[in-house]
Nucleic acid binder design. Structure first.
Lengths: 370, 370
DNA sequence: TTGTATGCGTTATCAC
DNA sequence: GTGATAACGCATACAA
């Protein structure tokens, strides 16, 4: 390996001078600079980020801890994070933790040993205790698309997320406005704050519509396609009566679709369906369900930028960004469509030319009482 | 920050002893081990991976350089890589390079400075010169889902990929067997070896069927949805005559679908469509096109395991793994379906219960002449 | 403008 | 069994 000393020897100067040239710090005469640069090129010298990091206590690396890099929502978040990081010369260490607390703990431990400059994490639950390692060592942290269940006055975490409560309320209200009264909520893991918020939004919508909430209609599982299949199956097997399904996230929604299709149940004629978050634009190709979409790319980008700003000391007080969501309905959107489009409801697939795409900016309903 | 010396002081031993306890190396008496372990716990000591890396010249980190972490194929590869790495306590540095040679170069430079133990890369093109930095510093390297255009006797790179030639040949033959003679090839960037191989397989299939290849039917673009839209548009605008489209990858395929739907062209009645690689199981939900799928997860997993094996010196001679692909056809697969299923062709969407799913292991056709 | 000395946190080597 | 010493590659404080 070519080190700074090799370059120094080759250029006939001291290592410090090479360092100064590389980092553009301190005074270096034009002549020596050129000598040094020539030597660097000749030897193909590349500074060791590790040695530099050890010395400076800065690695220009962030950790990105996600539940599932296979889910289009999270990959788009990751893409936003990566773009912002790359632009500012930061690298990203990726950890996939599967909504598994054990894996999350291991990832956190590893991350601490790596001395990253910051952590972007979608924590499995809202307990601060599970992020304790980050807090103790005051690692700059941004929480992505989720939130904490507690207020932590002495730990300045930033949060970038959508407003799941208002999004879920919008979806539920949409279904109610179409005449649905029995709406099944097929949710993800109850411990995640997004699952909590989406169920909360669902309850609020029902309450405001004067519909009593049947607890049998609320099912918790995992944020995965297979869980969507299983939960749908479970509901059908138990013979529970409902005319619409609210899928707690995009993967669950795809599972619901799969199971309903398998059973030969037509969407939305027999059972209507709404998703939280689209699934790689599935709603565009398969426009028989309605989605609330968050701008995942922007969430990722904003989170990374915020982390850079915190890591470089540009801000220190905690910040929370709540990005807007949109309700997108392309079909079965009776309450929003005119008669002509209503009549399309009986068709299983519609030529998009005949479709009116309705996009509705979901108003933020914050703050909510605890 | 708590260092090894702090622990040593707290336990009343020397740093070396602490190191021995942490790494289970050398002899340590049971009594001191307990003292040290108590001190570690009390102080919350976490070894610095950086300092250790500097000393050992090993980071337990791999770089994963991908074209597009938003594409379900690559995310599944990434997932396989991550799983294998996590299992062996390796971390993954993720770089997204967008089939952009400039970004790839920057990523490589960064990666070298990080002193990763190995690199997993889907190189933009097959030129060894563009991987020169890795070769010069003999960084253990595995090429993922692509290959090199040159033979490099003195650089032992491993390769894990599918056989795009045979896969593309199978897809093309499938179309030919359905009666198609004018098949448009909507390919990705001509510089990537997968694009080259898939066009090659397409040509071979035509040739074997005695169909002359109309060069106007071959279009090159990017491996993205938007490019799929544009290329389809381009073909239609130029009034070129064809009855089927071969999409060079999954994203392009989704673009083709989007544009055909937009134009109100029915798939496959008016234009048949095949994809290379599925798109998040799109073919399952939307079973009117045929795909060749690679086991992306296995590709990623195998690649990571291979890299671990090389990084730990378990093997040194170059290896190439060619994983099998499958042709999956669920609809419009006239030549493979019986009359009943043939009759389904006129329906735009079919209840999967009525569908015969045909999965065909694509035989490897290697080796091919250069 | 350049160089010397020092230390970042760790572990291999050798001595006791 | 345990400890002192040196070195990994770099950048800072200080001296020249």
């Amino acid at each position: 390996m070519v080190t700074i000393s090799d370059v120094a020897r080759c250029a006939g100067v001291s290592p410090v001078t090479v360092s100064r040239v590389v980092n553009r710090s301190g005074y270096v005469s034009e002549k020596t600079r050129q000598k040094v640069e020539k030597a660097i090129k000749e030897l193909g010298y590349i500074p060791s980020a590790m040695a530099r990091g050890l010395r400076l206590n800065r690695t220009y690396t962030f950790a990105l801890i996600l539940p599932d890099i296979t889910n289009p929502f999270w990959t788009t978040v990751a893409r936003g994070v990566e773009d912002a990081a790359q632009q500012r010369e930061y690298s990203i260490l990726l950890y996939n933790v599967d909504e598994d607390m054990h894996k999350q703990e291991r990832a956190l431990e590893t991350v601490l040993s790596q001395q990253v400059d910051g952590v972007l994490i979608a924590p499995h639950d809202g307990l601060v205790s599970h992020l304790q390692p980050l807090r103790m060592r005051s690692v700059p942290t941004v929480i992505v698309d989720r939130r904490l269940n507690e207020v932590v006055p002495d730990w300045p975490v930033d949060i970038v997320r959508g407003d799941s409560i208002s999004g879920a309320k919008a979806l539920t209200t949409h279904l109610i406005s179409l005449g649905h009264r029995k709406i099944a909520m097929v949710s993800g893991d109850e411990r995640t704050t997004t699952a909590q918020d989406r169920v909360m939004g669902y309850r609020i919508a029902l309450q405001e519509a004067g519909i009593s909430c049947d607890e049998n209609l609320i099912v918790y599982g995992e944020f995965r396609v297979s869980a969507g299949v299983e939960m749908t199956n479970h509901l059908m097997e138990r013979g529970i009566n409902f005319s619409a399904i609210f899928a707690g996230n995009n993967a669950i929604g795809m599972g619901v679709v799969r199971e309903l299709i398998r059973r030969g149940i037509r969407i939305p004629e027999e059972i209507a369906l709404v998703f939280y978050d689209d699934y790689a634009n599935a709603s565009e190709y398969f426009p028989f369900f309605t989605v609330v979409t968050q701008n995942a790319y922007q969430i990722g980008r904003t989170a990374a930028e915020l982390l850079i700003s915190r890591a470089t000391g540009e801000h220190s007080e905690p910040r929370e960004f709540i990005l807007p969501s949109r309700l997108v309905t392309r079909y079965s959107c009776g309450s929003m469509l005119d008669d002509h489009h209503q009549s399309l409801l009986s068709l299983p697939i519609v030529n998009p030319k005949d479709l009116k795409e309705v996009v509705w900016e979901v108003p933020l309903l914050l703050p909510y009482p605890a």
